[in-house]
Simulated assay, not measured.
Amino acid sequence: MKESLPTLRVRTEYGDLLARDGIVICFFMHRSHGEVIHAVWQALQTYRRAIPLQALSWYVDLNGDPQPLDDKGWEHVREKMLDREWPIPCSVTLEEHCDAAGGYNFEYEGRWLDEPRYMYDEDPTCAVTFTLPTEFLVEHGPGRVRALALELARALPFNFGYASLALVSPGGHWYAARRTVLELRDRYPGMDVYKLGETSQHIGTRARGAYWLTFLGLPLLGRLGGLEVLRRRLPFPDVSMLTLPPLEGERVLISLGEWPEAIDTEKQERPSPQLLALAQLLEPFLHEERSNWFSFLEHDPEDMRRWIHRFCP
């Protein structure tokens, strides 16, 4: 419920806003950039229509510097995304603010899976995220967020995707305030912490976890036994399942309740039974993060795995 949604701001020791509460909508596609980019561009236009005008105001250039997302900036982004030829990868970050973490952000990582450099990665993917501030959820309601996530998903050839409450930080620059992030991550297990560039390097067709909205495509959906098995294993009144056209039976959205839940452990809140049941189903197929960005604490390599499996028995 909206009354339990936390308001969070994470700042560096210098006072810079590093992260804030929000919603992340994320999709992983085990295909090459050239196969997915037109669908990603279509999804970006859907996202732009759904958010306030000029909510995306900056893009990050090749040097990592913010540039205004005016007409010239949008033409640059369009050319970068749609005219990228093999074997040049494509990394795009669009942000609400140039000097602080905003609620509206878009990130895309496009790779050519047959390009030699990716032979050293383990199951790389193309991946995309869209974020919303929590205020959007409160103002428009969870039904509007769910409808937007579904509209985005319809355009994308995803293998796995999700929508969740999250600590929103474009680019995932967690290290500058890692202690605070670690504390909030453990206090609110229902809030996602993500770094698209890292995870997309090796997630392949596996799942990242169980979420408020979980999108399953092939081959993961088949490994789970298909839609009928999911319905038998998740017989909860708050769970709904919807197949996505045009590939009926090959892509499904699992919704766990009306509102996303942060699960505040300091208030003794507990994960819902349906969230635990979905996590148990997905556990054999969970992706394990490879790099230290997620652990924050170098002396505790198991920290990463514990968090990924936080809802599993």
Rank of each mutant, 00 (worst) to 15 (best):
S4H: 15
P6W: 04
P6A: 05
R9S: 15
Y14T: 09
Y14C: 02
Y14G: 11
L17P: 03
A19H: 01
I23C: 01
I23Y: 04
I23W: 03
V24H: 06
I25E: 01
I25S: 08
F27P: 01
F28W: 08
M29E: 00
M29G: 02
G34R: 00
V36W: 00
A43H: 10
T46R: 14
L53F: 09
Q54D: 10
A55P: 03
V60L: 14
D61N: 15
D61F: 10
D61G: 12
D71G: 12
K80D: 14
D83S: 12
W86S: 04
P87N: 03
T93F: 06
A101N: 06
A101K: 03
G102Q: 04
G102R: 02
F106V: 15
Y108P: 05
Y118L: 13
Y118W: 11
M119C: 12
M119P: 00
D121L: 12
E122W: 13
D123Y: 07
T125C: 13
C126I: 05
C126H: 02
C126A: 09
A127R: 01
A127S: 14
P133W: 11
P133T: 07
H140Q: 14
G143K: 09
G143S: 10
R144Q: 13
R144A: 13
V145N: 09
R146V: 08
A147C: 03
L150I: 09
R154K: 12
A155C: 06
A155M: 12
P157C: 03
F158Q: 04
F160T: 00
A163Q: 08
S164M: 03
S164H: 06
L165S: 05
L165Q: 03
S169H: 00
G172A: 02
A176I: 10
T180D: 08
V181D: 03
L182N: 12
L184S: 08
P189L: 12
G190I: 00
G197M: 10
G197H: 12
E198Y: 13
S200K: 05
Q201E: 15
H202A: 12
G204W: 05
T205C: 11
T205G: 03
G209A: 07
G209L: 07
G209M: 08
Y211I: 04
Y211C: 03
Y211R: 11
W212P: 00
T214N: 04
L216W: 10
L220R: 04
G222H: 14
G222V: 00
R223L: 15
L224Y: 07
E228A: 13
V229N: 12
F236V: 00
D238R: 15
V239C: 01
V239P: 07
L242T: 13
P245R: 13
P245K: 10
E248H: 13
G249L: 11
G249C: 08
L256Y: 01
E261T: 00
A262V: 05
T265S: 11
E266S: 13
K267E: 15
Q268E: 15
Q268W: 10
P271M: 09
P273K: 08
Q274S: 15
L276Y: 02
L276R: 12
A277Y: 08
L278N: 03
Q280T: 15
Q280Y: 08
L281D: 05
E283Y: 10
R290W: 09
S291G: 06
N292K: 08
N292E: 09
W293T: 05
W293Y: 09
S295N: 11
S295T: 12
F296S: 09
E302F: 10
D303A: 15
R306N: 09
R306H: 06
I308G: 08
I308M: 14
I308N: 13
R310A: 07
C312S: 15
P313E: 14
